[in-house]
Write a protein that binds this DNA or RNA. Structure first.
Lengths: 164, 164
DNA sequence: AACAATATTTGACGAAGTCCAGAATCGGGC
DNA sequence: GCCCGATTCTGGACTTCGTCAAATATTGTT
Protein backbone atom coordinates (compact mmCIF):
# COMPACT_ATOMS: atom_id res chain seq x y z
CA UNK A 1 0.00 0.00 0.00
CA UNK A 2 2.57 2.53 1.13
CA UNK A 3 0.37 5.57 0.92
CA UNK A 4 1.71 8.36 -1.19
CA UNK A 5 -0.84 11.01 -0.46
CA UNK A 6 -0.27 12.24 3.06
CA UNK A 7 -3.01 10.14 4.56
CA UNK A 8 -3.03 10.49 8.31
CA UNK A 9 -2.15 7.13 9.79
CA UNK A 10 -5.06 7.53 12.18
CA UNK A 11 -7.36 8.07 9.26
CA UNK A 12 -5.89 5.02 7.62
CA UNK A 13 -6.78 2.90 10.59
CA UNK A 14 -10.32 4.19 10.73
CA UNK A 15 -10.84 3.49 7.09
CA UNK A 16 -10.00 -0.10 7.73
CA UNK A 17 -12.38 -0.32 10.62
CA UNK A 18 -9.68 -0.35 13.22
CA UNK A 19 -10.09 1.64 16.39
CA UNK A 20 -7.31 4.14 16.77
CA UNK A 21 -4.96 3.80 19.72
CA UNK A 22 -1.49 5.01 20.45
CA UNK A 23 -0.17 1.46 20.43
CA UNK A 24 -1.59 0.64 17.05
CA UNK A 25 -0.31 3.84 15.53
CA UNK A 26 3.15 3.18 16.89
CA UNK A 27 3.10 -0.41 15.70
CA UNK A 28 2.01 0.60 12.25
CA UNK A 29 4.66 3.23 12.11
CA UNK A 30 7.37 0.88 13.35
CA UNK A 31 6.63 -1.58 10.59
CA UNK A 32 6.27 1.07 7.91
CA UNK A 33 9.56 2.66 8.85
CA UNK A 34 11.38 -0.53 8.38
CA UNK A 35 9.61 -3.55 6.98
CA UNK A 36 10.54 -7.14 7.79
CA UNK A 37 10.63 -6.51 11.48
CA UNK A 38 9.85 -9.22 13.99
CA UNK A 39 7.36 -8.82 16.81
CA UNK A 40 10.25 -8.30 19.17
CA UNK A 41 11.77 -5.59 17.03
CA UNK A 42 8.45 -3.86 16.88
CA UNK A 43 8.08 -4.00 20.64
CA UNK A 44 11.45 -2.40 21.07
CA UNK A 45 10.76 0.40 18.65
CA UNK A 46 7.32 1.08 20.00
CA UNK A 47 8.68 1.27 23.50
CA UNK A 48 11.18 3.85 22.39
CA UNK A 49 8.37 5.84 20.91
CA UNK A 50 5.50 5.70 23.35
CA UNK A 51 7.27 4.58 26.48
CA UNK A 52 5.88 1.15 27.05
CA UNK A 53 3.83 -1.65 25.59
CA UNK A 54 3.23 -5.16 26.79
CA UNK A 55 4.26 -8.14 24.80
CA UNK A 56 0.65 -9.11 24.52
CA UNK A 57 -0.15 -5.68 23.24
CA UNK A 58 2.31 -6.04 20.42
CA UNK A 59 0.95 -9.38 19.33
CA UNK A 60 -2.61 -8.12 19.59
CA UNK A 61 -1.86 -5.01 17.62
CA UNK A 62 0.02 -6.79 14.90
CA UNK A 63 -2.72 -9.38 14.71
CA UNK A 64 -5.43 -6.79 14.21
CA UNK A 65 -3.50 -4.89 11.60
CA UNK A 66 -2.82 -8.06 9.68
CA UNK A 67 -6.44 -9.14 9.89
CA UNK A 68 -7.61 -5.82 8.59
CA UNK A 69 -5.22 -5.91 5.70
CA UNK A 70 -2.92 -3.11 6.79
CA UNK A 71 0.05 -5.35 7.29
CA UNK A 72 1.28 -8.57 5.82
CA UNK A 73 2.88 -11.35 7.75
CA UNK A 74 5.49 -13.72 6.40
CA UNK A 75 7.79 -16.20 7.93
CA UNK A 76 10.99 -17.41 6.33
CA UNK A 77 12.06 -20.81 7.60
CA UNK A 78 14.17 -20.64 10.72
CA UNK A 79 13.25 -17.06 11.49
CA UNK A 80 10.55 -15.61 13.67
CA UNK A 81 7.52 -14.13 11.96
CA UNK A 82 8.13 -10.86 10.19
CA UNK A 83 5.81 -8.05 9.23
CA UNK A 84 5.71 -5.59 6.39
CA UNK A 85 3.42 -2.87 5.15
CA UNK A 86 3.59 -3.58 1.47
CA UNK A 87 0.29 -5.33 1.02
CA UNK A 88 -1.78 -5.89 -2.04
CA UNK A 89 1.00 -6.11 -4.52
CA UNK A 90 2.26 -9.62 -4.66
CA UNK A 91 5.96 -9.18 -4.23
CA UNK A 92 8.52 -11.70 -3.02
CA UNK A 93 11.48 -11.97 -0.72
CA UNK A 94 15.14 -12.57 -1.00
CA UNK A 95 16.75 -13.91 2.14
CA UNK A 96 20.44 -14.27 2.92
CA UNK A 97 21.25 -17.66 4.35
CA UNK A 98 24.14 -16.43 6.43
CA UNK A 99 23.04 -13.13 7.89
CA UNK A 100 19.28 -13.28 7.45
CA UNK A 101 19.02 -9.98 5.67
CA UNK A 102 15.76 -9.78 3.78
CA UNK A 103 14.88 -7.62 0.83
CA UNK A 104 11.87 -7.28 -1.41
CA UNK A 105 11.84 -8.28 -5.04
CA UNK A 106 9.20 -7.76 -7.61
CA UNK A 107 8.18 -10.77 -9.53
CA UNK A 108 9.29 -11.24 -13.08
CA UNK A 109 5.76 -12.09 -14.09
CA UNK A 110 2.80 -9.74 -14.06
CA UNK A 111 0.69 -8.42 -11.25
CA UNK A 112 -0.33 -11.55 -9.44
CA UNK A 113 2.50 -13.78 -10.43
CA UNK A 114 3.04 -17.30 -9.42
CA UNK A 115 -0.63 -17.61 -8.62
CA UNK A 116 -1.09 -20.19 -11.30
CA UNK A 117 0.80 -23.42 -10.89
CA UNK A 118 0.90 -25.87 -13.71
CA UNK A 119 -1.81 -27.95 -12.08
CA UNK A 120 -3.91 -26.62 -9.24
CA UNK A 121 -5.19 -30.07 -8.27
CA UNK A 122 -8.57 -28.72 -7.36
CA UNK A 123 -7.24 -26.22 -4.87
CA UNK A 124 -8.62 -22.72 -4.70
CA UNK A 125 -5.42 -20.72 -4.57
CA UNK A 126 -5.30 -17.29 -2.99
CA UNK A 127 -1.63 -16.62 -2.57
CA UNK A 128 1.65 -17.59 -4.09
CA UNK A 129 4.53 -17.09 -1.73
CA UNK A 130 8.03 -17.02 -3.12
CA UNK A 131 11.23 -16.93 -1.14
CA UNK A 132 14.60 -16.84 -2.80
CA UNK A 133 17.48 -18.14 -0.72
CA UNK A 134 21.05 -17.09 -1.27
CA UNK A 135 23.88 -14.95 -0.01
CA UNK A 136 23.73 -11.21 0.16
CA UNK A 137 26.47 -9.06 -1.37
CA UNK A 138 28.04 -8.36 2.02
CA UNK A 139 28.26 -12.01 2.99
CA UNK A 140 29.67 -12.93 -0.39
CA UNK A 141 32.37 -10.38 0.09
CA UNK A 142 33.15 -11.45 3.63
CA UNK A 143 33.83 -15.09 4.45
CA UNK A 144 34.98 -16.64 1.20
CA UNK A 145 33.47 -19.85 2.50
CA UNK A 146 31.92 -21.05 -0.68
CA UNK A 147 30.04 -24.22 -0.05
CA UNK A 148 32.84 -26.48 1.11
CA UNK A 149 31.69 -27.09 4.61
CA UNK A 150 28.65 -29.31 4.78
CA UNK A 151 27.42 -27.69 7.93
CA UNK A 152 23.79 -28.24 8.61
CA UNK A 153 23.14 -24.56 8.77
CA UNK A 154 19.88 -23.68 7.30
CA UNK A 155 18.40 -21.41 9.88
CA UNK A 156 21.29 -19.05 9.46
CA UNK A 157 21.72 -18.78 13.22
CA UNK A 158 19.73 -15.59 13.03
CA UNK A 159 22.12 -13.36 14.92
CA UNK A 160 19.83 -10.69 16.19
CA UNK A 161 20.14 -7.52 14.27
CA UNK A 162 21.39 -8.93 11.05
CA UNK A 163 18.30 -7.79 9.32
CA UNK A 164 17.95 -5.30 6.52
CA UNK B 1 14.72 -39.42 -6.32
CA UNK B 2 12.28 -42.27 -5.73
CA UNK B 3 14.43 -45.10 -6.95
CA UNK B 4 12.89 -47.31 -9.52
CA UNK B 5 15.52 -49.99 -9.75
CA UNK B 6 15.36 -51.98 -6.55
CA UNK B 7 18.30 -50.20 -4.95
CA UNK B 8 18.73 -51.41 -1.40
CA UNK B 9 18.11 -48.45 0.88
CA UNK B 10 21.22 -49.43 2.81
CA UNK B 11 23.20 -49.29 -0.40
CA UNK B 12 21.68 -45.92 -1.13
CA UNK B 13 22.93 -44.56 2.15
CA UNK B 14 26.42 -45.88 1.62
CA UNK B 15 26.59 -44.37 -1.80
CA UNK B 16 25.93 -41.00 -0.28
CA UNK B 17 28.61 -41.49 2.30
CA UNK B 18 26.19 -42.06 5.14
CA UNK B 19 26.88 -44.72 7.70
CA UNK B 20 24.08 -47.24 7.82
CA UNK B 21 22.06 -47.59 10.99
CA UNK B 22 18.64 -48.92 11.79
CA UNK B 23 17.45 -45.45 12.73
CA UNK B 24 18.53 -43.85 9.48
CA UNK B 25 17.00 -46.59 7.41
CA UNK B 26 13.74 -46.27 9.25
CA UNK B 27 13.76 -42.49 8.97
CA UNK B 28 14.47 -42.61 5.27
CA UNK B 29 11.72 -45.11 4.77
CA UNK B 30 9.25 -43.12 6.84
CA UNK B 31 9.78 -40.04 4.72
CA UNK B 32 9.76 -41.93 1.45
CA UNK B 33 6.56 -43.71 2.32
CA UNK B 34 4.81 -40.49 2.87
CA UNK B 35 6.50 -37.21 2.09
CA UNK B 36 5.77 -33.94 3.88
CA UNK B 37 6.04 -35.49 7.28
CA UNK B 38 7.20 -33.51 10.28
CA UNK B 39 9.97 -34.66 12.58
CA UNK B 40 7.34 -35.73 15.05
CA UNK B 41 5.49 -37.77 12.50
CA UNK B 42 8.71 -39.45 11.54
CA UNK B 43 9.49 -40.27 15.15
CA UNK B 44 6.12 -41.90 15.54
CA UNK B 45 6.44 -43.99 12.44
CA UNK B 46 9.98 -45.00 13.20
CA UNK B 47 9.00 -46.07 16.67
CA UNK B 48 6.31 -48.27 15.27
CA UNK B 49 8.89 -49.85 13.03
CA UNK B 50 12.00 -50.31 15.11
CA UNK B 51 10.64 -49.96 18.60
CA UNK B 52 12.22 -46.79 19.82
CA UNK B 53 14.20 -43.74 18.86
CA UNK B 54 15.06 -40.61 20.76
CA UNK B 55 13.87 -37.26 19.69
CA UNK B 56 17.41 -36.16 19.14
CA UNK B 57 18.01 -39.23 17.05
CA UNK B 58 15.26 -38.20 14.72
CA UNK B 59 16.58 -34.69 14.31
CA UNK B 60 20.11 -35.94 13.82
CA UNK B 61 19.07 -38.53 11.31
CA UNK B 62 16.96 -36.13 9.33
CA UNK B 63 19.75 -33.59 9.47
CA UNK B 64 22.29 -35.97 8.03
CA UNK B 65 20.02 -37.16 5.29
CA UNK B 66 19.26 -33.60 4.32
CA UNK B 67 22.93 -32.65 4.36
CA UNK B 68 23.83 -35.55 2.16
CA UNK B 69 21.15 -34.74 -0.32
CA UNK B 70 18.87 -37.68 0.32
CA UNK B 71 16.06 -35.60 1.71
CA UNK B 72 14.81 -32.08 1.29
CA UNK B 73 13.54 -29.88 4.04
CA UNK B 74 10.87 -27.22 3.73
CA UNK B 75 8.83 -25.23 6.13
CA UNK B 76 5.52 -23.60 5.35
CA UNK B 77 4.75 -20.67 7.63
CA UNK B 78 2.98 -21.69 10.78
CA UNK B 79 3.87 -25.32 10.42
CA UNK B 80 6.79 -27.28 11.74
CA UNK B 81 9.52 -28.26 9.32
CA UNK B 82 8.57 -30.97 6.85
CA UNK B 83 10.67 -33.44 4.92
CA UNK B 84 10.35 -35.09 1.57
CA UNK B 85 12.41 -37.41 -0.57
CA UNK B 86 11.87 -35.71 -3.90
CA UNK B 87 15.17 -33.96 -4.25
CA UNK B 88 16.94 -32.55 -7.23
CA UNK B 89 13.90 -31.53 -9.17
CA UNK B 90 12.83 -28.11 -8.08
CA UNK B 91 9.16 -28.64 -7.44
CA UNK B 92 6.82 -26.57 -5.32
CA UNK B 93 4.09 -27.00 -2.76
CA UNK B 94 0.44 -26.35 -2.45
CA UNK B 95 -0.80 -26.00 1.10
CA UNK B 96 -4.38 -25.91 2.34
CA UNK B 97 -4.96 -23.08 4.77
CA UNK B 98 -7.64 -24.86 6.69
CA UNK B 99 -6.46 -28.44 7.00
CA UNK B 100 -2.79 -28.13 6.22
CA UNK B 101 -2.79 -30.79 3.56
CA UNK B 102 0.23 -30.40 1.35
CA UNK B 103 0.75 -31.62 -2.18
CA UNK B 104 3.50 -31.27 -4.74
CA UNK B 105 3.21 -29.22 -7.87
CA UNK B 106 5.57 -28.97 -10.75
CA UNK B 107 6.48 -25.53 -11.82
CA UNK B 108 5.10 -24.07 -14.97
CA UNK B 109 8.54 -22.88 -15.94
CA UNK B 110 11.47 -25.07 -16.84
CA UNK B 111 13.81 -27.13 -14.76
CA UNK B 112 15.02 -24.69 -12.15
CA UNK B 113 12.16 -22.28 -12.19
CA UNK B 114 11.80 -19.22 -10.14
CA UNK B 115 15.51 -19.07 -9.59
CA UNK B 116 15.70 -15.82 -11.40
CA UNK B 117 13.87 -12.92 -9.87
CA UNK B 118 13.50 -9.73 -11.83
CA UNK B 119 16.37 -8.16 -9.93
CA UNK B 120 18.74 -10.21 -7.83
CA UNK B 121 20.15 -7.17 -6.03
CA UNK B 122 23.60 -8.67 -5.92
CA UNK B 123 22.52 -11.80 -4.14
CA UNK B 124 23.89 -15.17 -5.14
CA UNK B 125 20.71 -17.20 -5.25
CA UNK B 126 20.76 -20.94 -4.77
CA UNK B 127 17.14 -21.81 -4.21
CA UNK B 128 13.73 -20.51 -5.06
CA UNK B 129 11.07 -21.74 -2.72
CA UNK B 130 7.49 -21.46 -3.81
CA UNK B 131 4.44 -22.16 -1.71
CA UNK B 132 0.91 -21.75 -2.96
CA UNK B 133 -1.71 -21.14 -0.31
CA UNK B 134 -5.34 -21.99 -0.76
CA UNK B 135 -8.09 -24.42 0.14
CA UNK B 136 -8.03 -28.04 -0.81
CA UNK B 137 -10.95 -29.67 -2.60
CA UNK B 138 -12.20 -31.32 0.58
CA UNK B 139 -12.23 -28.13 2.58
CA UNK B 140 -13.94 -26.26 -0.22
CA UNK B 141 -16.66 -28.85 -0.23
CA UNK B 142 -17.04 -28.88 3.54
CA UNK B 143 -17.52 -25.63 5.43
CA UNK B 144 -18.98 -23.26 2.86
CA UNK B 145 -17.30 -20.54 4.88
CA UNK B 146 -15.99 -18.51 2.04
CA UNK B 147 -14.07 -15.58 3.40
CA UNK B 148 -16.74 -13.87 5.46
CA UNK B 149 -15.28 -14.42 8.85
CA UNK B 150 -12.19 -12.36 9.46
CA UNK B 151 -10.76 -14.89 11.85
CA UNK B 152 -7.07 -14.54 12.41
CA UNK B 153 -6.39 -18.05 11.33
CA UNK B 154 -3.26 -18.34 9.37
CA UNK B 155 -1.51 -21.21 10.98
CA UNK B 156 -4.45 -23.38 10.14
CA UNK B 157 -4.57 -24.65 13.72
CA UNK B 158 -2.61 -27.59 12.41
CA UNK B 159 -4.87 -30.30 13.73
CA UNK B 160 -2.47 -33.15 14.03
CA UNK B 161 -2.87 -35.63 11.26
CA UNK B 162 -4.58 -33.37 8.80
CA UNK B 163 -1.77 -33.92 6.39
CA UNK B 164 -1.83 -35.54 3.00
C1' DA C 1 37.20 -60.35 18.75
C1' DA C 2 38.82 -55.60 19.53
C1' DC C 3 39.17 -50.84 18.51
C1' DA C 4 38.43 -46.12 17.12
C1' DA C 5 35.22 -43.35 14.92
C1' DT C 6 30.61 -42.46 14.50
C1' DA C 7 25.74 -42.58 16.25
C1' DT C 8 22.31 -42.49 19.63
C1' DT C 9 20.33 -41.61 24.07
C1' DT C 10 19.28 -38.74 27.88
C1' DG C 11 17.95 -34.83 30.07
C1' DA C 12 18.32 -30.02 30.49
C1' DC C 13 17.58 -25.86 28.16
C1' DG C 14 16.04 -21.90 24.96
C1' DA C 15 13.28 -19.23 21.72
C1' DA C 16 8.97 -17.99 19.94
C1' DG C 17 4.63 -17.69 20.65
C1' DT C 18 -0.08 -18.61 22.82
C1' DC C 19 -3.53 -18.53 26.42
C1' DC C 20 -5.66 -16.89 30.48
C1' DA C 21 -8.18 -13.85 33.46
C1' DG C 22 -8.86 -10.01 36.13
C1' DA C 23 -8.06 -5.12 36.50
C1' DA C 24 -7.26 -0.72 34.58
C1' DT C 25 -7.75 2.35 30.76
C1' DC C 26 -9.19 4.45 26.64
C1' DG C 27 -12.06 5.73 22.36
C1' DG C 28 -15.82 7.49 20.36
C1' DG C 29 -20.92 7.74 19.90
C1' DC C 30 -24.73 9.99 22.26
C1' DG D 1 -19.16 15.39 29.33
C1' DC D 2 -20.63 10.39 30.08
C1' DC D 3 -20.86 5.81 29.54
C1' DC D 4 -20.14 1.23 27.58
C1' DG D 5 -17.67 -1.68 25.04
C1' DA D 6 -13.20 -2.34 23.08
C1' DT D 7 -8.39 -2.35 24.13
C1' DT D 8 -4.30 -2.94 26.96
C1' DC D 9 -1.77 -4.34 30.87
C1' DT D 10 0.19 -7.60 34.18
C1' DG D 11 2.42 -11.58 34.55
C1' DG D 12 2.65 -16.16 34.81
C1' DA D 13 1.99 -20.76 33.06
C1' DC D 14 2.28 -23.50 29.16
C1' DT D 15 3.20 -25.58 24.42
C1' DT D 16 5.75 -26.62 20.56
C1' DC D 17 9.82 -27.03 17.97
C1' DG D 18 14.32 -27.49 18.24
C1' DT D 19 19.37 -27.49 20.15
C1' DC D 20 23.35 -28.52 23.41
C1' DA D 21 26.46 -31.52 25.93
C1' DA D 22 27.92 -35.46 28.25
C1' DA D 23 27.41 -40.43 28.64
C1' DT D 24 26.62 -44.66 26.31
C1' DA D 25 26.15 -47.78 22.46
C1' DT D 26 26.90 -49.24 17.70
C1' DT D 27 29.23 -49.68 13.22
C1' DG D 28 32.49 -51.30 10.21
C1' DT D 29 37.06 -52.49 9.93
C1' DT D 30 41.36 -54.64 11.13
Amino acid sequence: MSVQLPVEPAELLRRHGVQVTAQRLAILRAVSDRPHRTADDVAEVVRAEIGAISRQGVYDGLGVLVDKGLLRRFQPAGSPTRYEDRVGDNHHHLVCRSCGQTVDVDCAVGTSPCLHPANDQGYEIDEGEVIYWGRCPDCRKGAGDGRTRQSNRKSATSTRGGEQ
